[in-house]
Every structure is written in C-alpha cells, then in structure tokens.
C-alpha cells in the first residue's frame, strides 16, 4: 500500500513533529519504501496463530503494597526541567 501526503501529515501530527514540506517529502518516500518492505508479511499465513507480545515465561510479577525510598528526590527530578515554579513544572499556556 502507498501512503499519501495526508497520511504522512497525519502521522507527523500523531508523532508531534512540525515537519517542513521538504521533510514531509523525503520522509514520505522513506516511509513508502519501508512499508513496502514490511508488507511482505502479507505472504505469511498466520491463521489461528496466537500473537506473541513478550518472549518471557513469567506471569503475575508484582510487588507488595509498601512505601519505599526512591532513587531520586523531588528536588533532583525538578532540577532536570527547564522551568520550575512553586515545586511544579512550568509549561507554556495550553492554547
């Protein structure tokens, strides 16, 4: 299948990229060749095959409901953000 310009723009939105027209063009080309390649899975018959999401034999892995010290403090974490105010992360207004 062929992805057109609108699909590329939609994917860019989903990915949160502001792409230049040039980028849309080049990425669009790349995406089409990639999708062309992965579409060869169509040949494969997966009738009645269960999917595998994890190659891992374990199940029911969980922890006790106990408060424990963490690997970083609030101060260490907030120090990583560009703008902080009143112990909160400052972001531009949501339009």
């Amino acid at each position: 299948m062929e992805v057109n310009c609108d699909t590329i723009k939609h994917l860019a939105k989903l990915s949160n990229f502001s792409l230049s027209d040039a980028e849309i063009k080049s990425l669009g080309g790349d995406l089409n060749s990639i999708i062309g390649y992965i579409s060869q899975l169509d040949e494969l018959d997966v009738e009645n095959i269960e999917p595998t999401y994890q190659v891992f034999e374990m199940e029911n892995v969980w922890r006790a409901d106990e408060i424990l010290p963490q690997d970083a403090t609030r101060e260490q974490l907030l120090a990583l953000t560009k703008e902080e105010k009143d112990n909160q992360i400052k972001v531009p207004k949501v339009l």
Binding site: A12, N16, F17, L19, V94
Partner: peptide
Amino acid sequence: DLDGLYEHTRDEGFMSENKRRIMTGNF
C-alpha cells in the same frame, strides 16, 4: 504555546532515523 513546544522540541531533537521509526511505528 504548548503544541509548539512539543512539535519544535521533537522536530529539532530527533534525528531523521528516529523520526522514520516513530512515524513507521505510529503507522
């Protein structure tokens, strides 16, 4: 504004190959 922050940060912050994979994944 917030939308711009997301889009420009991710547009400038990722390499082309990162973008290809992110967009393929979202596809």
